[in-house]
Amino acid sequence: MQIYLPIAEISANFMTLIGMGGLVGFMSGMFGVGGGFLMTPLLIFIGIPPAVAVASEANQIVASSVSGGLAHWRRRAIDIRMGVILMSGGVAGSYAGVQLFKLLRALGQVDLLISSSYVIFLSVIGALMLRESLHAIRETRKGRPIRVRRPGQHSWILRLPLRMRFRQSRLYISIIPPLLIGFLVGMLSAIMGVGGGFIMVPAMIYLLRMPTNVVIGTSLFQIIFVTSAVTVLHAVENQTVDIVLAVLLMIGGVIGAQFGAIAGQRLRGEELRALLALIVLGVACKLMLDLVVEPAELFSIQRLEVGP
């Protein structure tokens, strides 16, 4: 069954979209990741204009982060104060990201911005994840307990001025690093249509030294607001949010995530991560090839907005 997407201006198969939402939802439930970094490339692969894919995916992530965030809220596993600081940086970053997006869109280079951001981030993260999980698998095979590597000291960053007490995280640190991290992730969110948990979570653990029990909840908490800001800003500046598309992805995503979470409990952590790393690298390769191999059609058409 075909459904017309009013902003993307194309018809797409209803079941394909729900199915993709389900598949990515399943993987996000299984691996415990957001899934935006897989969904946006998939949408581009099926022919959704990249600018619409990014903005609509940000809209979908609002839904998944609200449902995920609420679960952590009930367990009181959110550092609200830290979340607000990260989010302030994040909203500023998303504004900057949307402006950059708008500028490059007018120049016809936004597709390149999206693809190259994906290639860079997916290959770096995929490679790091693969290395780490393979290492873990080897260690477990040898019967050695996995040592949790303590990161190097970054304490000078945390001792910058403008310190604040974060009771929930038992920290007394400068707000400059969280503001900057928030800004960077907000920008990525606007450009790539992701929540940015894959950057935010490691940054919180290794740079801000937050206790792991509040990391996921706080990350989700700030993602709700940052992706909301991204959605509204893209709607205002670029008119690229397709609500019909976003809602279909939400429906699929919700169902998929429930089954994914069940499946994830039956598989071993390291092997899961290695599998995810391979998927991430595969997507990065496909995007890279699309940039490097001579396209069949060298020309593209963009209708000029005949707006007021």
Binding site: I7, A63, V66, V232, H234, Q239, I243, A246, V247, I251
Partner: peptide
């Protein structure tokens, strides 16, 4: 039609509507 017109003529309202729908769905699922 409503979505298209709103998206182009009242983009702020449209964006907020998108966030509202997403929030509602996320909450409903939770």
């Amino acid at each position: 039609q409503w979505l298209r017109v709103t998206a182009h003529e009242m983009p702020l309202l449209y964006g907020l509507f998108g966030v509202f729908i997403a929030g509602l769905m996320g909450w409903g699922v939770a």
